[in-house]
Design a protein around this nucleic acid. Structure first.
Length: 416
DNA sequence: TCTGGGGTCCTAGGACCC
DNA sequence: TCTGGGGTCCTAGGACCC
């Protein structure tokens, strides 16, 4: 079997770097990357968490996901900048255009991470290390931000290798380097070992990736089921998946959720939020050309208690009103009356929507479908506020709610 | 903890059927 | 019925990732 050469490219402090570059290009003299700074949500509407941090901010032990309130206690001079997802998408695309020159096989892993399959590409761009440095320098020079690149024979090792030391570095982590470079790392640095698994491993006396790698896999299987075997394989650098060009595996579900800027304490308001979320979910569903067989509603209370409820449709649908009726029913069935902080709507078990169209000879449904289509196209062209349901008039609520996109509907198809 | 939003995958338990 | 075993489907919840 041929040895593969895989690169993992990861933008350093992506959101923050991109914002910093944008500001420098627009005449600002301060580089956000040189001072304690973060990209953070809006605290007034209860979205106040850290989304990205500068390296100087890391000195204050600022963690992604932490509340802005908490980090300001430790770092009063912290600069907090709101997120701008349209800018991030532009930077992402600009980086992709450079990467495309180096390999035909690029897997987009997230907005700031890609894998590329460099196997056999050395005939064009030279040895892997040279090519990686070349890519890194070109991105820096042409786009203004830095990346880390990890090189190995599979995706897992390339990714862990790329994280070894940041920023602006190229690392290799080939199988023969595992014991020296990867095994000394804390076990929580392993892909797949998160907040819940790390303490469990610690309890078994496992603190490093090397200790995990040298634990009896049968013991791990007994303790952690199939997941135990998975992370044992990872700790030994065993991972075989291919770099899939274009990135994403087929989409499994579509959902939107929101933290509401006040605690909802009545069904009426809750239904309105659900409608606004359902509008976004269904629009995305239709854009993607799917119908859904399953809908789910999730609730987070003001005490951070979470629960959810789901139900199947008799026939798959992409109709906003049909799905909205179901989400209301789901909500009514499961809400226990506590004040609500966060609501979510999600559809899954997707199937193509073309055969459903044929079966919809009923004029009532045909009309609903036309209405959905018309509203979609108006909103795509003129933004979410072009058409909205009258219940939202003077309600203080957004008629369409979907995480990061807000007005940027044009962006949506490019994200999918 | 003054704690976001978008996803995927896995597991456990109950219902139901043979 | 003081009742077996196995398969499948469904639901809820938890864990992980960025």
């Amino acid at each position: 079997m041929n040895k593969r050469i895989i690169f993992h490219i990861d933008v350093n402090s992506a959101y923050l770097s991109w914002e910093a570059v944008y500001r420098l290009q627009h005449g600002e003299s301060l580089d956000l990357r040189d001072v304690p700074s973060v990209i953070g949500g809006d605290e007034a509407s209860r979205h106040g968490i850290v989304l990205a941090k500068s390296i100087p901010a890391k000195a204050y032990k600022i963690q992604t996901g932490e509340s802005l309130f908490a980090v300001r206690q430790r770092c009063p001079n912290l600069i907090v900048v709101p997120p701008r997802y349209d800018l991030y998408m532009q930077c992402h695309k600009a980086m992709l255009r450079i990467l495309e020159e180096y390999s035909p096989t690029i897997q987009v892993f997230s907005i700031d991470e890609c894998f590329i399959d460099y196997t056999h590409m050395d005939t064009v761009w030279g040895p892997p290390l040279k090519a990686a440095h070349n890519i890194k320098e070109r991105i820096h020079k042409e786009l203004g931000f830095t990346v880390n690149i990890g090189i190995s024979s599979n995706k897992l090792l390339a990714k862990i290798g790329g994280d070894l030391k940041k920023p602006d570095m190229v690392h290799t982590l080939f199988p023969e380097e595992i014991s020296k470079k990867m095994w000394p790392l804390p076990v929580e640095d392993l892909f797949g070992v998160g907040r819940a698994t790390a303490p469990k491993l610690h309890q078994m006396g496992i603190y490093t990736i090397g200790q995990l790698a040298n634990t009896d896999p049968e013991f791990l299987k007994y303790k952690l089921k199939s997941f135990g075997l998975l992370i044992w394989n990872y700790a030994n650098g065993i991972e075989e998946s291919n770099v899939v060009h274009g990135g994403r595996p087929p989409i499994k579900g579509i959902g939107n959720s929101t933290t509401i800027n006040f605690d909802v304490d009545n069904k009426h308001d809750a239904h309105k939020i659900l409608l606004s979320l359902t509008e976004m979910v269904c629009m995305r569903l239709r854009q993607a050309g799917f119908c859904a067989r399953l809908a789910a509603v999730s609730i987070k209370t003001n005490e951070f208690l979470k629960y959810s409820h789901q139900k199947k449709f008799c026939t798959p649908t992409d109709s906003t009103m049909a799905i909205y009726e179901t989400t209301c029913k789901l909500f009514d069935e499961c809400w226990k009356g506590q004040p609500i902080r966060h609501l979510g709507v999600r559809v899954s078990e997707l199937c193509g929507n073309d055969f459903v169209q044929l079966s919809l000879l009923e004029t009532h449904n045909e009309k609903k479908k036309r209405l959905d289509e018309t509203i979609d196209s108006l909103r795509m062209k003129f933004g979410s506020k072009a058409v909205f349901r009258s219940v939202f008039l003077h309600s203080g609520m957004r008629p369409v709610t979907g995480g990061v996109m807000e007005e940027e509907y044009q962006m949506m198809s490019s994200l999918l």
